[in-house]
């Protein structure tokens, strides 16, 4: 029995890691600048743009308040436009990315706001341009917080990726539902759950270690 199950579980694990990895990467690429702007575009702040703040803030909140499963279904036309299909593991990356962008943006905003404003002032006194304050001071100083936040995002995405079975994606969640639940195979369900626990543990440990390495505040 195990010999027939192993390849299926391995395949599903790979699909989950692929979906989560790619969407985490894409969402970070888009969410990072968004988070920086959210943290620095307020009135009197570094990259002052109050109008941007007023428009983008509510959009971010709106996206975050839609339950993921509804978001995944609602943006199917968009998914089809981007990937060419709304079914499959690659198609699942679109809703995962869209859901993760505002999540990451808020996390990065929070991490940047944690940086002592005295550092921004010091950098400006040294003649840093606003963008230099971001790249040389705010992001490096916020890095441990950002890594923690991205780890949290990765774990959340693993959870979400179980739901994208609804749009025909594979992965561990899909395997658990189709084999474990619908075919009454508690053994498959158990293997899926254990695998998910192991994956989440591994991601969390890896993230914690990275964050610790980046954190020079307590040596």
């Amino acid at each position: 029995m195990f010999s027939t199950l192993a390849p299926i579980v391995l395949q599903a694990t790979w699909e989950t890691l692929y979906m989560v990895g790619v969407s985490l990467f894409l969402a970070t690429a888009l969410g990072l600048p968004l988070g920086v702007l959210l943290a620095t575009s307020g009135r009197g702040e570094l990259l002052e743009a109050p109008l941007f703040q007023k428009i983008i803030g509510p959009i971010v909140n709106a996206t975050r308040s839609v339950p993921f499963i509804i978001l995944a279904v609602a943006i199917i036309p968009f998914t089809r436009f981007v990937v060419g299909t709304s079914i499959g593991t690659s198609a699942a990356i679109v809703p995962l990315t869209v859901a993760a962008i505002p999540f990451i943006a808020r996390i990065i905003e929070g991490a940047i706001r944690e940086v002592d404003s005295g550092l921004t002032e010091a950098a400006q006194a040294m003649g840093a341009r606003p963008l230099q304050v971001v790249t040389k001071v705010l992001l490096p100083e916020a890095l441990p917080g950002i890594i923690h936040g991205l780890t949290l995002t990765a774990v959340t995405l693993i959870g979400y990726s179980a739901m994208v079975g609804a749009v025909g994606a594979g992965g561990l969640g899909d395997l658990g539902i189709r084999y474990g639940y619908q075919r009454f195979r508690p053994d498959v369900m158990a293997v899926v759950v254990v695998t998910l626990i192991v994956v989440v543990q591994a991601v969390q440990m890896f993230g914690d270690r990275l964050a610790r390495k980046a954190d020079k505040r307590n040596i």
């Binding site: 002592d116 010091a122 950098a123 040294m126 490096p140 100083e141």
Partner: peptide
Amino acid sequence: RRQLGMVFQHFNLLSSRTVYDNIALPLEL
């Protein structure tokens, strides 16, 4: 501002940079 150096009450050093790299920051900028 590069013609003026400023020293602060609470130092305002970057925790992520070594002593050398903190001192180097204005030049890097």
